[in-house]
Amino acid sequence: MAEENVDVLVENIVTPENLVYRKPTTLLDVDMHYCPGCGHSTVHKIFMEVVEEMGIQNDIIGVAPVGCAVFAYNYMDVDMQQAAHGRACAVATGIKRMLPDKYVFTYQGDGDLAAIGGNETLHAANRGENFLVIFINNAVYGMTSGQMAPTTLEGMVTTTSPYGRDPKVMGYPLKFGELIAPLPGVAYVTRQAVNNVQNVRRTKKALQRALEYQKMGLGFCLVEIVSNCPSNWKMTPLESNKYVQEVLIPYYPLGDIKVPEVKK
């Protein structure tokens, strides 16, 4: 087929009445730095869809701390602050306490949230800070290329556990959601995944619920998302999604850990 014919064909097909899918307008139309198949881009997209659908683009402030997603502000078209490694929940506390009527979220990895930022996360949860924490758990340090995370599974090989994580030496994989769920300041803790279409839809629903709870002023909401890291796991995207399903999810089971009682 000649090139001009293809152009005409595309022009005829890409029309408003044929639209079945589009990027949310809240996601900037730029190339992402994430590796092919990485769960971050999926979570960015569905979270920005939620922001668009709820009509809160002008009323939400995000915090992106150190980790692969420190560049989230290059993609999410909302006001954002970059935070030091581990300090997202402290920064978010400062924002939310100053702007209680705005939506506030953090977007943190496992190392950031559960290792270096464990204290800030725990105390923000315990104060019942009324914001959303999106917690990407892929059991590895992505940005620094594959070191052990607090959530790395027993026996899992990383660059700093080259013979597999030995709990006797390196401690056990940390379930942070379960750890904070009993705290009275914590409203909502759920664990989701983005390794298949059904899980992506459930994750999106969870993110929306968390923002609704924030609007009701119910307190700290944690949406943990079990995700992949094809580059540092040295897998193809498909293999990594299979690994999420077969290895990670059995240790980090999906579903709600704590749900607030909301009067209908």
Binding site: R87, V91, G94, M98, N119, E120
Partner: peptide, 22 residues
């Protein structure tokens, strides 16, 4: 005025970062 006792000086200065950023 908001007066908040933070869990550490590390947290306190980052709360200031967030508030000052607003």
């Amino acid at each position: 005025m908001l007066v908040l006792q933070a869990e550490s000086e590390v947290a306190a200065i980052n709360m200031i970062y967030g508030a000052a950023g607003c």
